Amino acid sequence: MPLLLGVFLIWYSYNKFTPQQLQEIKDHFRDAKYGFVVLSIIFGLLSNLSRAYRWNFMLAPLGYKPLFSNNLMAVYIAYLMNLFIPRSGEISRALVINKYEKVPFDKAFGTIISERVADSVILLVFIGVTLILQFPLISGYLQESLDLFKIYLLIGIAVPFVFLFFYYLKKSNSALSIKIKTFLAGLKEGILSIFKMEKKWAFIGHTLFIWLMYVCMFYVMIFALPETSRISLSAILTSFVVGSLAIVFTNGGFGSYPFFIAGVLLLFGVPETAGTAFGWLVWSSQTAMVIMLGGLSFLLLPVLNKIKS
C-alpha cells in the first residue's frame, strides 16, 4: 500500500502539469548546481557514520561492542530495506548485528527503538519551533493534504487492541505468551540501556550532530536551484519538518517526499515546478547513496566478517 500511494502521488503530481511545466522541471534538473548535491550527500554520509558510532554507546551496557564497520553496514542495510518494505529496516538492522556480532535480537532491537525515541525528541523540538513560527500556515496545509478523520479513526481502533493484547499477556501462561514476554523483557532491557550508558554526553552529542547533518544536508540543497536559493529560514525549517514526516508515508518517502516538499514551498512563493524538482533532487540524491552503500554492505558484510573470523 505505501508503495502504491507513492506511485499515485507521482501520477497525481505530474498529471496536473502542462507539457510546458514538465519541460520546466526537466530544465531545473539540467541546470541544477550538482556540487551542492554532492555536498548534501557528504552531510548525509557523516550523519550515518555518527549513527553507527553512537549505537555502541547503548550496546556497551549490555556487554557488547560490535565492530564499527558492522554497525555502519547494518545501518545502510536498514535504510535500503526501508525502501522496499516500510519500517522493516529496524528489524533487518537487529538481525544483521545478531548474525555477525551475536547480539541477541531482542536487545539489539530494543536499543534501536531507544535510538528512535531519542531522535523523535529532536524532531519534536523542530516540529514545536516550526508550529510556533508557522502554525496557521502548517495547520491549513495539513488539513488540505491529509484526511485527519481517518487518522483519528485508526488511532481509536488501535488503542483498545493494544490494551487487550497486554491484558492477554498478563493473564496467559501459554507457550506463545511466555515467548512474547521473554522477547519484550529483552526489548525493555535494550530500550533502558540509554539510561545505563556511561557516555551519556557523548550519546547526546552524536544525536545533536546527526540532526545537524540532516539540517545541513537539506540546507545546502536550496542553493542547487536559483528559485530556492533565497527562501526564508521559515521556509527552510517548515519544509525540512514536513519532509521528515513525509518519509513515513511511503517506502523511504518515494513519491510523498517531493509531493509534500513542493506543496510547502509553493506556500512560500516557490513555483511548483521548481519545488517538485527540488524535492526530487533531495530525495533521489540521498536514496542513490542508500542504494549504492546498502548494496555494497550486503556484498561486503559476509566477506569482511569471514576474513575477520
Score class of each variant (00 low, 15 high):
Tyr53Trp: 15
Arg93Ile: 08
Ile194His: 00
Lys196Ala: 09
Phe223Pro: 09
Leu187Gln: 10
Phe105Ile: 04
Phe268Asn: 09
Phe109Glu: 08
Asn305Gln: 14
Phe17Glu: 13
Lys16Glu: 12
Pro271Phe: 00
Phe68Ser: 11
Gly205Phe: 00
Val282Glu: 03
Asp27Ala: 04
Leu304Trp: 13
Leu245Phe: 01
Leu59Gly: 09
Phe105Ala: 07
Lys16Tyr: 02
Leu301Glu: 05
Arg93Pro: 08
Arg51Tyr: 08
Ser177Lys: 05
Phe57Ser: 12
Thr130Cys: 13
Tyr12Cys: 01
Lys26Trp: 10
Ala158Cys: 13
Val162Thr: 13
Ile112Glu: 04
Leu62Gly: 04
Val282Ile: 05
Val38Asp: 11
Ile194Thr: 07
Ile42Val: 13
Val129His: 04
Ser50Asp: 14
Ser239Arg: 00
Phe223Val: 04
Leu59Ala: 12
Ser88Tyr: 03
Asp147Gln: 05
Ser88His: 03
Tyr168Val: 08
Gly35Val: 00
Ser13Thr: 13
Leu3Met: 10
Ala288Met: 15
Lys179Pro: 03
Trp280Glu: 10
Tyr219Arg: 05
Gln134Thr: 12
Val129Phe: 12
Tyr141Val: 15
Ser239Gln: 00
Trp55Tyr: 06
Lys26Gly: 07
Ser177His: 03
Ser172Lys: 09
Leu59Ser: 12
Gly63His: 02
Trp11Leu: 15
Glu115Tyr: 01
Arg51His: 01
Ala235Leu: 02
Leu304Tyr: 09
Val96Ile: 11
Thr130Glu: 09
Lys171Gln: 06
Leu39Trp: 11
Ile10Thr: 09
Pro104Asn: 02
Leu169Lys: 12
Ile194Trp: 00
Ser256Lys: 06
Trp280Ala: 09
Ala262Asn: 07
Val129Trp: 02
Arg54Tyr: 02
Lys170Pro: 00
Asp119Cys: 04
Leu304Asn: 08
Leu95Met: 15
Phe259Cys: 05
Ala202Glu: 14
Ala224Val: 03
Ile155Val: 14
